[in-house]
Computed example of a mutant assay.
Amino acid sequence: MATLKDIAQRANISTSTISRFLNEDPTLSVSEDKKRAILEAVESLGYQSPKRSKKQFVHHEVTKTNEPVGEQNVVMLNFLTPTQEIDDPYFTSIRAGIQNRCLEKGIDLKTLHLDQVDANLKLIKNAPALIAVGHFSKQVVETLYQANQHIIFVDSNPLGSKTDAVLIDRLALSDEVMQHVLNNHCKRPAFIGNNEERLHVFRKVTKEHGLYHEALCKVSKEYCIESGYQAMKEMLQLDELPDVVYAATDMVAVGVYRAIYESGLTIPGDIQVIGTNDISSARHMSPSLTTMRLFPFEMGEVAIDMFIEKMAGRKYKKTVLFGHEFIWRDSFQRK
């Protein structure tokens, strides 16, 4: 079982500060960065306060229930398993933001995972709103919408204007990455990621400039270290290597680093690397990782704000599109 000391080590914050924060000490002043670090460490380590009071950082993992959900309750559905989520800082941060806003507003949070949908359709139906985090199959989306049309999707928008959504602007951020790639006069850019907007922008831009090579475009269903590692190993078998790799996530970039170093090559001397998300360890990688900073914690908070708006009577559907920030570090440098 995780302890306050474990959280302190993960967040690099004193145990006394963490204890006071989790117990809502009104005399404590904590910066937003420290608050985010504490909440993300709490979530990733699965910490639960011994007191388990409603006002503390506690939510309910649902197995199966027939109880109706009250007006101050919200149901969150995560497309990842608990183990997968812990390994993905982006979605861990979204959940932490959701939980933080629920804590602030006194909202009871009930959590479901994808494999629990069928057993909890009544819970979903009775919820005043469902927050669906991640990417779901067409069949799951149809099941959810039939059960409850008051859905707030986070990081996807499968039903368009039929529901609320909180999104990152994948088109804009990938276009900015590719402009930096072009401005740096890269000749063999590579992409490792999923089949979504960033892949489409990469292909469009590289084809327009005569830089597209099918072997340098690796599509995976997972955003993880292993997928980045395997994809990069395959590219390193080519006669002509990429000069820059655009990784769909920083976790993918970690795998890319590993494969490059195992081959005896250097970053950025032989191959440059660009990631996405700006996870906490990105600045500590060797060399530090150039990446696109996103705002997943804030996305989670905004999802709850949209739920509160619904409860206050908002009738129209709403989509919130988050921006990004390109973070220049040593793995990809201006020329």
Rank of each mutant, 00 (worst) to 15 (best):
Q48H: 13
E61T: 12
G70R: 10
T65G: 02
G70K: 12
K51E: 11
F57W: 11
G70Y: 03
V69K: 02
T65S: 03
K64W: 13
Q72K: 13
S53Y: 13
K64T: 15
E67H: 02
S49M: 12
V58A: 09
P68K: 03
E71K: 12
V62W: 00
V62N: 02
V74Q: 00
K51F: 15
R52K: 14
S49F: 10
P50D: 07
K64D: 02
E61S: 09
F57K: 14
N66I: 09
P68W: 05
S49K: 09
H60T: 15
E67L: 05
H59M: 08
V58S: 00
N66A: 15
H59G: 01
V69W: 04
S49V: 04
K55L: 12
K51W: 12
T63P: 01
H59S: 10
S53I: 13
R52Y: 09
Y47S: 10
S49L: 10
S53C: 09
Q72L: 02
E67T: 06
H59L: 10
G70N: 13
H59C: 03
K55G: 14
P68M: 03
V62T: 04
R52E: 14
T63L: 05
H59P: 01
V62H: 00
H59N: 03
P50Y: 14
K54T: 09
V58Q: 01
N66Q: 11
P50F: 10
Q72A: 05
V62Y: 00
V62A: 04
G46Y: 06
V69I: 12
K55R: 14
H59T: 05
E71G: 02
N73R: 07
V69L: 05
V75S: 07
Q56K: 11
S53E: 09
P68T: 02
Q48P: 00
K54Y: 11
P50M: 08
N73F: 07
H59Q: 06
G46T: 11
V58L: 05
K51I: 14
K64A: 15
T63S: 12
K55I: 12
T63G: 02
S49P: 00
P68G: 06
N66E: 04
K51C: 11
E61K: 08
K64G: 01
P68V: 03
Y47K: 11
K55H: 11
G46H: 09
K54A: 05
G70C: 06
Y47R: 13
E61H: 09
V58M: 02
E67C: 01
T65L: 06
Q48L: 13
R52H: 13
H60W: 01
V69C: 08
N73Y: 00
G70W: 07
Q48C: 14
K64Y: 11
V58Y: 06
E71H: 07
E67M: 02
R52T: 13
N66L: 09
Y47T: 13
K64I: 10
G46L: 07
V69Y: 04
T63Q: 12
S53H: 14
Y47I: 15
H60C: 01
S53F: 14
E71A: 14
V62L: 04
K54Q: 07
T65Q: 00
F57Q: 08
V58W: 06
H60G: 12
G46K: 09
R52L: 10
P68E: 02
